[in-house]
């Protein structure tokens, strides 16, 4: 009684991580703020994107040097609208010495950035066969989540809300359904706006949460990074502790007998 719940690590393809928070590296005001925020978040996995080298620039390529040492770098396929482009991007990431773990995105719509789940499944199958550890960004659809698991993905990453929207979990019921059936880690990816959103994700029983804009776009990214670390830990502990049932009416906390008259 009264003991700290024994929380095991987040396990992805056999590798253990103590932090259940995965953070992106885009949109920070500067590399120094990014570095400090990444450290403050406690994250052990950070996402990166692949893009053409700017041939007209002679600027110092300090992004790579600004990533804190020892972090697992998770390349994404953001901006890919076809399975083929996503597969090419993963192969390029491997050539850059990254992987085999990749965050697979196949985007289907420019306005919402919702996934093209047909393209996503197609790419996942090819990449799993090629030996990649595939973490797919998907919508909050339990059927797609099951198909991604069947395709050999190492986790499934349903969105809470559109990328960068900060709307929080739009459909917690679907996330709960995905959790109920999944035999692989469920990481909510995209849509978190503030610390309470991250706590709700973890209270549902998700294995982790991935976010970028909520930290990078905050007025004080370093402070928000700390808030997110604490929220993920708090939400996880609340899940392990087991919340009380919701009741319609009050239930007094103080004894209702022996009142003075």
């Amino acid at each position: 009684m009264g003991m700290t719940p024994d929380d095991g690590p987040l396990v992805l393809a056999g590798r253990e991580y103590r932090s259940r928070l995965i953070v992106g590296t885009g949109k920070y005001p500067d590399f120094q703020t990014m570095h400090t925020a990444l450290v403050e978040s406690g994250a052990e996995i950070v996402t990166v994107a692949l893009r053409r080298v700017d041939l007209s620039s002679r600027g110092p390529g300090s992004f790579f040097a600004s990533l804190p040492a020892g972090m697992t770098i998770l390349p994404n396929t953001a901006g890919c609208y076809t399975a083929d482009d996503a597969i090419r991007t993963c192969r390029l990431a491997a050539e850059l010495g990254l992987g085999p773990m990749v965050k697979l995105e196949v985007i289907g719509d420019t306005k919402t950035l919702f996934p093209d789940v047909a393209g996503l499944l197609e790419a996942a199958k090819v990449l799993v066969k090629e030996g990649f550890i595939v973490l797919p960004y998907t919508n909050d659809d339990p059927v797609t989540a099951r198909r991604l698991e069947d395709a050999g993905c190492a986790a499934v990453m349903p969105l809470a809300a559109p990328i960068g929207s900060g709307l929080g979990i739009r459909n917690p019921h679907n996330i709960a359904l995905i959790l109920e059936q999944a035999n692989i880690p469920v990481l909510v990816d995209a849509g978190v706006g503030t610390a309470s959103d991250a706590a709700v994700v973890m209270e549902l029983g998700c294995d982790g949460v991935l976010m970028n804009t909520a930290i990078a776009g905050a007025k004080e990214p370093v402070v928000m990074a700390r808030a997110m670390r604490l929220a993920v830990e708090a939400g996880r502990l609340a899940f392990l502790a087991g919340r009380i049932p919701r009741k319609a009416y009050a239930n007094a906390s103080s004894p209702i007998r022996d009142l003075i008259e």
Binding site: G26, K27, T47, L50, R52, F64, I73, M211
Partner: peptide
């Protein structure tokens, strides 16, 4: 030819 590198991303 495509020449790519790492950049910040989510």
């Amino acid at each position: 030819i495509e020449v790519v590198t790492l950049v910040g991303g989510g």
